[in-house]
Simulated scan of single mutants.
Amino acid sequence: MPWPDPVSLEGEFASLVPLQEDHADALALASGDGEVWRAWYTNVPAPADVAAEIARRLGEQRAGRMLPFTVLDQAGVPAGMTTYMNIDATSPRVEIGSTWYAKRVQRTSLNTQCKRLLLAHAFESLGCIAVEFRTSSYNRASRRAIERIGAKADGILRNHSRHQNGTLRDTCVYSILDSEWPGVKAQLDHMLGFDAP
């Protein structure tokens, strides 16, 4: 199996487990919750397309380009997907992306917990020198969330790709460096209430 190895990451508000084909039905329900797949500037699979998206991500994993996870909520119910992608084992560095959540868990501690788990594993276990985030310039909620956890803007890749509706996408690129991780970790712990006396 290409680097990095599949792993389960457990937190108080959310957990991450390796994506599997048998997660399809539960993830289709999550995708349908709030019809999150209808946002034109994201690439969330429609419920009918979830199985194909799982197959695609697992294929990318076999090729060493992605490590996909199923996101579980506090009760252990699948609530979305996230991945390490654009994997560079030589540097080493990864991007956290292709993330989506059911509406029922949006604006909860779930996303903060997921980022805390993924960043800690990237910096503390995988030895990454940087972790990257990318999002459409139109996805203001995603941009705010990325900035809120302490990632710094690297720039904008103009006409970088296309949205699912065919329009051109400007991609906003952010990153966190290994030297910045202690401060970002403290911020995430504060956001999750882990630094309370």
Rank of each mutant, 00 (worst) to 15 (best):
P47M: 14
Y84E: 02
R104H: 14
K103S: 14
R148Q: 09
D73S: 07
G80E: 02
A55P: 07
P47H: 10
L67I: 04
K103D: 13
R148V: 00
D88Y: 09
G64P: 07
C128G: 03
E147G: 11
T83A: 15
L118K: 09
P92V: 08
Q74V: 13
Q106T: 04
W100R: 03
E60H: 12
V71Y: 08
G76I: 13
R65Q: 14
L72K: 12
Y101M: 15
G76H: 12
W40A: 13
F123D: 02
A51P: 04
S136Y: 10
A48T: 15
V131I: 13
D88P: 02
I146M: 00
N86D: 11
N159M: 07
A55I: 04
L58G: 06
H163D: 06
K115T: 02
G127H: 12
V105M: 02
M85Y: 01
A63I: 02
R56I: 05
C114G: 03
P92A: 04
H163F: 08
Q61M: 14
V44Q: 07
R57A: 06
L126I: 05
A130L: 01
R144D: 01
I156Y: 12
A141D: 10
A89Q: 04
T82C: 12
R62H: 05
T135L: 04
L119M: 08
I129L: 12
A51W: 05
E124I: 05
W40K: 09
R134V: 08
G76L: 13
L58T: 07
R144C: 01
A102P: 09
W100S: 02
M85E: 07
T42H: 00
S125G: 11
I149F: 15
R148P: 00
I87E: 05
A55F: 03
A89I: 00
G76K: 15
Y41E: 11
A52K: 15
A46M: 09
R158E: 03
Q113P: 09
N43G: 06
A122M: 08
F123S: 05
L72G: 08
R144P: 00
E124Y: 07
A151D: 07
R144E: 01
V71S: 03
K115D: 02
P68S: 03
V44S: 07
K152E: 14
H121F: 12
M81R: 00
Y84A: 01
E53S: 14
S142P: 01
G150N: 07
S91F: 14
E124T: 08
A48W: 12
S109V: 00
L117C: 06
S91R: 15
S109N: 13
N43Q: 08
N159V: 08
V71A: 13
E53G: 09
R57T: 01
L118P: 02
D49A: 14
W40R: 14
D49F: 10
Q61A: 13
I156S: 12
S91C: 15
L67D: 06
G64T: 00
E124H: 09
N86E: 11
L58I: 09
P92C: 07
E53M: 11
G64K: 01
D73W: 06
A153L: 15
N159P: 03
R162Y: 15
V105D: 01
T42R: 05
L110H: 10
